[in-house]
Computed example of a mutant assay.
Amino acid sequence: MEGLRTRKRKNPNYDFVPKTKKLKVIKNSIEVCCLKCSTLYNKEDEHFCQCKTGLINIGNSCYINSVFQVFADLMVPLYITSDSQLGLMIKSLRSYSEQPISTEIVLTELDHLWEHKNVQEDAHEFFIAMLAAFNGSVFQFSTQSECFCESCNLSFIGDLKEDNTFHMMIDGSTLQEQINGSMEEILADCPNCTWPKLTCYKTIIKPPEILVVKMNRFQFNQTTGNASKVSSKVEIPQNVEIGTKRYSLSAVILHKSRSLRYGHYTTYFHRKKILIDDEVVFYNKTLKLDHAHFYIAFYS
């Protein structure tokens, strides 16, 4: 999403085979040497090395680039075949290449899920759409609500619900406090007296493998009827817990703008201290955990 400014369109690079790796056999096992950091590692390791490959901005596509970078780094399994254009690109993003990659041919393959029209789009909406191409079950969690009616004092257990994103309210409470349980009023009829509003306390009873946290930075002004962005700093913790399961911050997608209508997305890998801005990869980059541009956090 580049908004009012659009970068010059570059010639797409459709070659997803990394040309900057050397293979050699050591004691009957294949090891790979990264030509950027000279790290030797086994080809079958879960991750290749710390080095990254950028993605070309093909016109207002930074929201696409940021999501693909996260999917690749978190090793999210594919639903479609690994030899597809998407599979080849994701594999290439897990190793270093001097030349950035274009997503154009990949988006053509996925046009039944998402049609990029060279206009501003939301990174979280694109993330949701891509769950049909990846194994979205790694993000799923279950919530249970205990509801209370203030009119007749009825208390009852609500339905079990599935979700893939935890929506963090910007209200001064911490993420861990909200994960532990959140109170909300919902417009629903009481099953006993039909009072049209219930107070519900919601908790996570089945944690996900990878926790996705979206900061609710978009608000609606009931007086003016306009939507606006909440630009306040949001402090996100390095670690969170759901029951006995402990998570640490892996990646964050940032949205830099004071408006909903334009802006720019980048991706930050907290553990690796890497910031990716489309084609450009910055190493040894440290961002404070109360950044004003944090939008979607990924814990694993």
Rank of each mutant, 00 (worst) to 15 (best):
K24S: 15
Y262W: 12
V234E: 13
E104A: 14
C147L: 03
K272W: 01
Q238W: 11
D73E: 08
L86N: 02
M89L: 10
R9S: 10
K36T: 04
I253E: 00
F166V: 00
S228Y: 11
C37K: 07
E109L: 10
C62T: 10
S84A: 04
C34T: 02
E184F: 04
H264K: 01
T223D: 12
C152G: 02
I30M: 13
E146C: 09
D122M: 08
F126D: 08
F71H: 08
F156M: 02
G158Y: 04
S248N: 13
Y247T: 00
F134R: 05
D15P: 03
Y262A: 13
C33L: 09
H116E: 01
I56T: 11
S250P: 05
I80F: 09
L160Q: 06
C190S: 04
R7M: 14
R261S: 07
I274E: 03
V234M: 15
T39K: 15
K21R: 11
K161M: 09
D111L: 13
G87C: 09
R7A: 14
S102H: 07
I90V: 11
N284L: 08
Y262E: 15
W114G: 10
I170P: 07
H47D: 10
I242E: 00
P207D: 00
S228H: 11
S257T: 01
T108Y: 13
L107K: 06
S182W: 03
F134M: 02
S38K: 14
H291D: 13
D163E: 12
Y283W: 14
L107G: 06
F294V: 11
K161S: 14
V240C: 03
S95C: 13
Q140V: 11
P12V: 07
K22T: 12
L86T: 03
T6K: 14
G3S: 14
N226W: 04
V230T: 10
L107H: 00
P207T: 02
D278R: 09
V252N: 04
K285V: 12
F141V: 05
H112T: 14
S155P: 11
K202S: 00
P208H: 07
A132T: 02
G158W: 02
Y96S: 03
L35R: 09
C190F: 00
N180L: 02
G172Y: 12
Q238D: 12
N28G: 07
Y299K: 06
K19F: 10
H291F: 09
H47K: 12
T286P: 09
L160G: 00
V32Y: 09
